[in-house]
Computed example of a mutant assay.
Amino acid sequence: MKRLILAAAVALCAPAAVAHDGPVSTGAVQAVSEAAAPAVAAVDAFHAALGSGDAAAVLALLAEDVVVLEEGGAERSRDEYAGHHLPADMTFAAATTAEITRRAAWVQGDVAWVLTEGRTTGEFNDRPVDRLTAETMVLHRDGDAWRIRHIHWSSRAPR
């Protein structure tokens, strides 16, 4: 079902440049409604904070009850994520380069969905990294700010 939703989102995309903390290919595809732009900015700020090692900024963008799904595991709160994967995620983000290849985002009321596909390359723990990535983030509006309520990350080696 996730692949069907992602495929439908990608099919609706039109070529555009995409803002991100690293270089983006000119072939990147984006379908982001104007209403979703602030939520996308929150996702980009989250990744920038990860890459710069700013744990306080990362945590400020997460809802207290965030659920992070990665590699078959779950962290069910901001505190649990902070105490487990956050340090390694910051180290990994600092050592690698993430490129966005496709992105789609929508808002309905106070909820936003941001779907991002990309490629992450570099070296981590003395090993080369080359992964195709997929990320789903669900955010909610908290006053004037967007907070991340759910993250789902997956990746695979390119063929």
Rank of each mutant, 00 (worst) to 15 (best):
R78N: 13
V18L: 06
P128T: 04
A82M: 10
F46G: 13
H20Y: 06
L132I: 14
G53K: 00
T91H: 08
D130T: 02
A28R: 00
D126E: 10
E71C: 13
P128L: 02
T121Y: 00
G53V: 05
R103V: 15
R3F: 09
I100W: 00
H150R: 12
D144Y: 03
H47L: 05
T116P: 04
V43Q: 05
G143T: 08
A31Q: 10
E70T: 14
A145V: 13
T121Q: 05
M137N: 11
I151T: 14
A74M: 13
M90D: 10
S155E: 05
D142G: 03
A31N: 12
L50F: 01
G72I: 08
L115M: 11
V18Y: 06
M137T: 10
G118Q: 01
D65Y: 05
Y81P: 13
L59M: 10
A35T: 11
A14I: 15
F92G: 15
S154W: 00
A41K: 02
V18Q: 08
T133R: 00
S154M: 06
L50N: 01
L61Q: 13
S33M: 03
A56R: 11
V66I: 13
H140D: 06
V138E: 00
L12S: 15
A56D: 13
R3S: 14
P23Q: 04
